[in-house]
Design a protein around this nucleic acid. Structure first.
Length: 595
RNA sequence: GGUCUCAUAGUUCAACGGAUAGAAUAGAAGUUUCCUAAACUUUAGAUCCAGGUUCGAUUCCUGGUGAGACCA
């Protein structure tokens, strides 16, 4: 499927066999792209094979290069620089590879492999709205799911909502005690924002109480535990767990508002889930598995009755899995939920998109599942991502110093609108079309910005400067697509043929480079799926778009005198547009036909 | 105290152990009678420090420095 490269590897393997009587494993060696300053497109590093060839690096390269040139029509030329054998592929080979791409509507989609993969992401708390960190999480999860699907997996996207616990009780308490009974309708606030407001309010009042107690001479740590508000919140949590009607009703009402708010945000983001789990339904799970673990000797009990697992041999220390009074800790319900998820959707792999502050937690969880001998334990994967920093410092939701997800997206839409108007690009568009375009561009910008960075690294988000529409950005790629669409429209009105005759054409270096990039698409999907890395796709599509812009600038596409060449270039443009569209689709980004 | 991440141009990001460490942006200089200038071309600028492994280290190992997270 990887066209050219795979065949070339086979030719090289047979060269090794014939020249050095050595069986080279086609899977185990890789070719590198040739650096720009040298002739050729594929490079074999011969340093690695000197033992097999029993010759010097340059002589080995010469021998292999000469053999390939004489024995296969694929290789048109070669050159050797030190231990690097640079190969040039014949135009005919490029053209026939391109012809396959051009004719394949679904080019890049890998054949189904029957593998089931679950991807869990988003996982919001219902006491506050989504923020910038959630955007990175949501876009990552959504994109990884799409990439896995394209690589041939059957994917199920799930969201585990944290809708119970002390933090929700804080919002509930503040709403009841300090609120005036306002609703999303009466306040004009989205449900999640309304509840978030009370969460911040709780914290403010709570801090006041602590200060007061400390002022009276109480130890600060003690004051945090003794403040009346926190005691009340704990009382409320207990009532909730006991099923107190009034408390549950309040909880239900506020949660419903929050979910309405979340749904609106998800819709704006353009993401969806196949299934939603609620912690209020799952928080008691896992206890039976603790029992099972005790019986199997995976866990052990301490004097106070608490249950532990010893992971010292993995440098993970001892970890509590159940308290002395028999109540659960976080990991208990995660063990149970993991099992539940597998019962619902018997996956080979399960990906958790969760921030890197939980690295330790997931190491422990996965280790426990292995010790419990779950057959799927090896397929569990924590897609850990770094925090998104702001220039002003850390985000703190309790203090209200977060960048709100809805606000950011709105800001992006506004920026897109302003820039589009400034460039005078809305002529001929209806109001709705223009509005849709702003959204497509704004969303493309923020998604691309968050996805192009290696997930595991922390990244900086500067609302003022970071989001640009020039350079390595979503809109740059979207623009390239729109530009090609314009060319294709023009081609139709001119009734120029997009057919091409491969015979006797000598490819322009820019064309060759473009075809080369196109043939890399399936390889990119495979790599991105293997590493769970949308960043690889982003990098790929940026390179492709950039290459196309260079091509566009340098090579005339509409040329009345050489129709057959023109046809080929239009066909090439069409394939590039198609691959851009598919690649951006993997990132969850739409590409407009005009902008 | 223990464990885990990260460290690259002024800034934001790249680089299966490979060639002269790439982009973008900000800076300097150019390109629109011709398919969309949200574009293109030219230019200047970087691997935290000290060892080790080898034909070759930004990458792997050890120690240090700095930033961050987690565990009790």
């Amino acid at each position: 499927m990887e066209l050219i490269e795979k065949e070339l590897k086979q030719e090289i393997a047979s060269a090794f066999k014939s020249l050095f009587q050595f069986e080279l494993d086609v899977e185990s060696f890789s070719l590198q792209p040739t650096r720009k300053e040298f002739e050729g497109t594929h490079t074999l590093v011969t340093f690695s094979y000197l033992k097999q060839t029993k010759k010097g690096p340059e002589e080995s390269g010469q021998l292999i290069g000469e053999y390939l040139k004489n024995h296969t029509s694929m290789v048109s030329d070669y050159n050797v620089v030190k231990g690097f054998l640079n190969l040039s592929i014949s135009d005919a080979t490029w053209l026939s590879a391109f012809e396959k791409i051009h004719q394949d509507e679904r080019f890049g989609t890998l054949a189904g492999n029957g593998q089931k993969v679950m991807v869990e992401f988003s996982s919001p708390n219902t006491n506050k709205p989504l923020h910038l960190g959630h955007l990175r999480n949501n876009f990552l999860g959504d994109s990884v799911a799409k990439i896995l699907e394209a690589s041939g997996c059957e994917v199920m996207k799930v969201n585990l909502v944290n809708d119970r616990g002390i933090h929700i009780c804080k919002s509930m308490l503040a709403y009841e005690k300090l609120g005036n009974g306002e609703t999303p309708d009466s306040s004009g606030l989205k449900g999640d924002h309304l509840i978030g407001k009370y969460y911040v309010l709780f914290d403010k009042e709570y801090k006041k109480e602590i200060e007061g107690l400390v002022h009276q001479g109480m130890d600060p740590d003690e004051a945090k535990k003794q403040a009346p508000l926190i005691l009340e919140a704990q009382e409320m949590l207990k009532k909730w767990e006991d099923g107190d009607e009034k408390t549950v009703a309040l909880w239900q009402k506020l949660n419903d508002w929050v979910f309405e708010g979340f749904d609106a945000s998800y819709q704006t983001m353009g993401i969806s889930f196949d299934k939603i789990y609620h912690e209020s339904q799952t928080y008691l799970l896992g206890k039976d598995i603790i029992q099972e673990g005790l019986e199997k000797g995976v866990f052990f009990t301490k004097e106070d009755g608490s249950v532990w697992v010893d992971l010292a041999d993995e440098k993970l220390d001892e970890k509590l899995v159940q308290r002395g009074d028999g109540t659960s800790v976080y990991i208990t319900q995660d063990i149970g939920t993991c099992e539940l998820k597998h019962d619902d959707f018997p996956f080979e792999k399960s990906v958790y998109v969760v921030g890197n502050e939980q690295d330790y937690h997931f190491k422990v969880l996965f280790s426990i599942m292995k010790k419990l001998q779950r057959p799927y334990a090896d397929g569990l994967y924590h897609l850990s991502y770094g925090m998104v920093d702001l220039p002003t410092g850390k985000m703190k939701s309790r203090e209200g110093t977060v960048v709100d997800a809805d606000d950011i997206m709105q800001e992006m839409f506004d920026t897109a609108e302003r820039q589009t108007r400034e460039l005078g690009k809305i002529e001929g568009l209806t109001e709705e079309e223009a509005e849709a375009l702003y959204r497509t561009l704004g969303l493309g910008a923020i998604k691309y910005f968050l996805l192009k960075v290696d997930p595991k690294k922390r990244m900086l988000f500067d609302p003022q400067e970071s989001i640009e529409f020039q350079g390595n950005t979503g809109p740059f790629i979207q623009y390239t697509h729109a530009r090609i669409s314009a060319i294709l429209r023009r081609a139709r009105t001119l009734e120029v043929s997009t057919e091409f005759d491969a015979a006797g054409i000598s490819l322009h270096p820019r064309e060759l480079e473009l075809i080369h990039k196109l043939t890399d698409f399936p390889k990119t999907i495979a790599a991105a799926a293997r590493d769970y890395s949308p960043a690889l796709v982003a990098q790929y599509v940026y390179d492709l778009a950039k290459e196309y812009n260079g091509f566009y600038q340098e090579v005339p596409i509409f040329n009345e005198e050489r129709k057959e060449v023109v046809g080929l270039r239009i066909a090439l443009s069409k394939s590039v547009a198609q691959v851009i569209k598919r690649s951006m689709g993997l990132l969850g980004i739409a590409v407009p036909d005009r902008m």
